[in-house]
């Protein structure tokens, strides 16, 4: 598929821990089309962030290691690049914003300095040009009196403002791909909405390709065109956003949607929960990683891990069971 901007194939990432090797990402493959917004959802620890960090070579190593896979970006495999080569991709071509704006900015450096760093590095601007651009960037993300705030330190900004700074920083070199790793999780709800509006506006203005990692299905419904659900380091379902919400096929996706309050449904519904906790995989399971928590699990589920297969056009599911009928496919 030549029209893919980013093409990840068979990505596997492991962490060495004192208790053994944790299999965090287990053969994840996905593609990203130019201009689309891809939502990645799943519980904490399901491998969403690690997948994206692996692609950018940001896994702390040791203990982490990308053990297999390819990630093609403009014909080049990001995973095989040297440290120096991938450094020129990071921030310039593919930018990432992280979950906690309170800790993601360096507390001892001014916001201005942190903003101009990538501009001077990747675009070769002088400090003066970069300062001017930094003001534009801060104005773009809606920070009032941007010019006066370059000399301020991160602690002088509120959480929402810091996340705006983070976003402006990652967009400073107009990257091709913008990866947002739960950028609204640490913010309160009204600020969340503002940030999401901001990203949507910027996407429409700048035509960015976005990967939006979250555990909030509501946010994804708002923003994404396509959604990928991850569990235990596997992609277990992938579909266009409407298809996924109207026609969820994996028991885990069903569980996630069932735990979400909805305004559009008539009558009273009890919110459901998924019993148990996500697994920490010290070994690659032979069975479906979700089967211990799955209401639909049949014998086959305990014997073989289902592959991610197309059920309909563009809708891929990794499950042996047809959740509509409850019977094995």
């Amino acid at each position: 598929m030549p029209d893919l901007l980013l093409d990840v194939k068979g990505l596997e990432t492991q962490f060495k821990t004192p208790d053994g090797i944790v299999h965090a990402v287990n053969g994840v493959s996905f593609g990203l089309k130019e201009g689309e917004t891809l939502g990645v959802v799943g519980e904490s620890g399901c491998g969403k962030s690690v997948t994206m960090l692996s692609v950018l070579g940001l896994i702390p190593s040791p203990p982490g290691k990308v053990v297999a896979g390819e990630a093609f970006y403009f014909g080049q495999d990001l995973l095989k690049m040297s440290k120096e080569e991938i450094r020129h991709v990071r921030g310039a071509q593919i930018a990432m914003v992280f979950q906690d704006p309170m800790t993601s900015l360096n507390p001892v450096l001014t916001v201005g300095l942190q903003l101009v760093e990538p501009l001077m590095l990747h675009l070769g601007m002088t400090r003066k040009q970069a300062d001017a651009r930094a003001v534009e960037l801060l104005e773009m993300v809606g920070i009032p009196k941007a010019k006066d705030r370059l000399g301020d330190y991160p602690h002088q900004f509120s959480g929402g403002m810091r996340q705006r700074v983070m976003i402006s920083m990652s967009l400073s070199c107009t990257p091709q791909i913008f990866i947002a790793d739960e950028p609204t999780t640490a913010l309160d709800v009204t600020i969340q909405a503002q940030i999401i509006d901001l990203v949507r506006r910027l996407r429409d203005e700048l035509g960015m390709t976005i990967i939006w990692i979250t555990h909030d299905l509501g946010v994804v419904a708002n923003l994404a065109q396509r959604v990928m659900v991850m569990y235990g380091g596997y992609i277990i379902e992938e579909a266009p956003v409407k298809e996924l919400y109207f026609n969820p096929s994996h028991p885990y996706t069903l569980g996630l949607l069932g735990s979400l309050p909805r305004l559009d449904e008539k009558g009273r519904h009890r919110l459901t929960s998924i019993d148990g906790v996500p697994p920490v995989l010290y070994e690659k399971p032979i069975h479906c990683p979700f089967s211990p928590r799955c209401k639909f699990a049949v014998e086959h589920c305990w014997k073989e891990n289902p592959p991610l297969d197309d059920v309909t056009q563009g809708h891929r599911v990794a499950c042996w069971v047809d959740t509509k009928t409850g019977r094995e496919r």
């Binding site: 450094r87 930018a95 990432m96 992280f98 993601s104 900015l105 990652s170």
Partner: peptide, 12 residues
């Protein structure tokens, strides 16, 4: 986290 941010910016 801010060191990861610095890395994500592609700094040396």
């Amino acid at each position: 986290d801010y060191i990861r941010t610095a890395r994500a910016k592609g700094l040396q």
